[in-house]
């Protein structure tokens, strides 16, 4: 029964519960990656770790940015900065669906009172050269998560296959906490000495970023940054595997991948500024994908990626 399930009280409660739940299932709880990304998948803990045969299990919150979604803090359900909760387990365990349903229960969604459905949705990231099959998970007709079995990343077949879960935290929290306006939902406990809503934390910054993203960002500088990131990524990967100073084999896949992430985010900013035409769009996406593929090629040359000397 609904009453027997302990409901979360605020946004951060949902995050804490998801972390506790997945920690109890053996995941390493990581922190967000310290770069601007468009989605939790970009975190090297997912993109790079999905490659190679080394087993892996991690969960983390990833602040994500989609400049075109900016609404100056006025929209009840769209922000250019938002949070995703990401779980990645390699190889995907046979009971991943049951584990996922357990996580919903942990945040107060009682399967006996709701209609939870796995609806076909094949995931593809053209910028990462990645795809997988799975579902969007519906709770009472609302998409609450993305559930994917990775088949390819950076042009490499995933073997073994990783299972990836992505929760859109704002939408999920609004549903669980019963708020139509995301800015009004409590971020910390409403009983705290200083109770703050989601809007208290982000609304002002949303307006600032919307203005910058849409009208102020210097497109010449951004275009140059894109080229720089592209060039640096290639330069890093051109270095020989053996480091002349230490004499060790050090393939710099992750520093190169940082440049790929950077290029991807700069592309999103340029897109929001409206300076990329429809035809150019595809070309830019293709350039980022090339970087992602080069980084994937490099990662499988590292120990974590399965390289054996």
């Amino acid at each position: 029964m609904a009453a027997s399930i302990d409901k979360p009280t605020c946004f951060q409660d949902i995050i804490l519960r998801l972390q506790a739940y997945w920690a109890s299932k053996g995941c390493t709880i990581l922190q967000p990656y310290d770069m601007e990304v468009g989605a939790g998948t970009f975190h090297p803990a997912t993109t790079l770790r999905a490659l190679g045969s080394t087993p892996w299990a991690a969960a983390y919150v990833q602040p994500s940015r989609r400049p075109t979604d900016g609404r100056y803090g006025d929209s009840p359900n769209r922000w250019q900065h938002y949070y995703q909760f990401q779980v990645i387990i390699k190889p995907s365990p046979p009971d991943l669906q049951a584990l996922y349903l357990g996580s919903l229960e942990a945040i107060g969604i009682d399967a006996s009172m709701h209609d939870i459905r796995f609806v076909e949705d094949d995931w593809e990231s053209p910028t990462l050269g990645a795809w997988g099959l799975g579902w969007e998970v519906w709770c009472d007709g609302m998409e609450v998560s993305q559930f994917t079995y990775f088949q390819q990343v950076g042009g490499h077949d995933c073997n073994p296959v990783s299972g990836e879960l992505t929760y859109g935290l704002e939408r999920l929290a609004m549903y669980v906490l019963g708020f139509d306006d995301g800015n009004a939902m409590p971020f910390n406990s409403p009983d705290a000495p200083i109770p703050l809503t989601y809007g208290d934390v982000f609304r002002e910054a949303e307006a600032q970023y919307a203005r910058w993203n849409f009208d102020v960002a210097d497109t010449d500088i951004l275009l140059q940054h894109f080229k720089d990131a592209e060039a640096e990524c290639a330069r890093i990967l051109e270095q020989p595997a053996d480091d002349p100073k230490t004499g060790r084999r050090i393939v710099m896949a992750q520093p190169a991948y940082d440049q790929c992430i950077k290029a991807s985010h700069i592309f999103n900013l340029l897109d929001a500024r409206g300076v990329i035409s429809v035809t150019e769009r595809q070309a830019y996406i293709g350039r980022v994908r090339t970087l992602a593929k080069m980084c994937a090629d490099a990662f499988v040359q590292t120990e974590a990626g399965g390289y054996v000397a």
């Binding site: 006996s112 709701h114 209609d115 939870i116 007709g141 609302m142 549903y175």
Partner: peptide, 25 residues
């Protein structure tokens, strides 16, 4: 008309309310 995949103690009231909310958005 929406078609749920389950029976609930509240005869689908929660499910329907959720669906209605998604549609309204």
């Amino acid at each position: 008309i929406t078609v749920a995949n389950t029976e609930t103690a509240d005869q689908g009231a929660t499910i329907l309310a959720g669906n209605q909310k998604v549609l309204a958005a």
